[in-house]
């Protein structure tokens, strides 16, 4: 039989892997037990048709607790560039770290074509040491022709509706309604679980030129 420690840790890339609850591994045994107990109470409310949003809020706050410390990269000062015009007159781009790509244009991580999500999860430590690859996604593509693979988060929601991490359809709609001057013809995605130093280098050396060639003046960025 598992100890409480074994049980909670198994949700983070272990035998009970569930990326929605991988944060349990970073809680103490007492904290994890408290989280689970409260979850059952909130599920009971849900069974009685009461406060369905509270369980979701509880899960979100559990995740937030683990990430409520500054990361490895902290900066005292910000960099700010004003758009200098109305969004309705500007060219707007989209780049997400969700791991989307067009079907048939697999970025082939580690040379593997058609890598499954399960394998990506299994190889997450290798991804974290790897230079990310930028996938170019035409704005004319249909959502059904996009694929997602990312070993760092639960992709079940984005498999149902990719717009929750790669909001292509609402942006096309906002362009049609003229809230956006022009949505860039090419949009971008990459796997955010990657080597951070290598990421900064490849953005400065390579990605920035690709993005500038699109005439993008404002960029919407979406981490997962």
């Amino acid at each position: 039989m598992d100890t409480m420690k074994d049980f909670k840790n198994a949700f983070s890339y272990g035998e009970r892997n569930n990326l929605n609850f991988k944060f349990l591994a970073h809680l103490s045994e007492k904290e994890a037990a408290g989280f689970i107990e409260t979850s059952f109470q909130l599920m009971e409310d849900g069974l009685n048709g009461r406060f369905p949003g509270r369980l979701i809020e509880h899960i979100t706050q559990g995740q937030k607790k683990v990430y409520s410390v500054p990361g490895k990269f902290t900066y005292e000062t910000g960099i700010f560039h004003a758009l200098g015009k109305k969004v309705s007159e500007a060219t707007i781009g989209l780049c997400t770290s969700s791991g989307h790509f067009v079907k048939g244009n697999d970025p082939k991580p580690f040379g593997v074509e058609g890598m499954t999500q399960t394998e990506a999860v299994y190889r997450i430590q290798e991804f974290l040491r790897e230079t990310p690859q930028l996938s170019t996604i035409p704005k004319s593509v249909e959502m059904k022709n996009l694929q997602v693979r990312h070993g760092g988060y639960d992709i079940s929601g984005t498999e149902i509706d990719g717009n929750i991490t790669f909001p292509l359809e609402p942006l096309v709609c906002l362009e049609k309604e003229r809230h956006i001057g022009k949505l860039a013809d090419k949009l971008y995605s990459f796997v955010g679980a990657c080597a951070q130093g290598a990421l900064k280098k490849v953005v400065k050396d390579d990605w920035i030129n690709i993005i500038k060639a699109q005439g993008i003046e404002g960029m919407i960025l979406v981490p997962v």
Partner: peptide, 23 residues
Amino acid sequence: MSVGHLARILEGEGIATVVIATE
């Protein structure tokens, strides 16, 4: 955080950015 690095580099290159993220 990958997107944070991207935002800072793009701003430095004259591209305005906005990040949409879960709290």
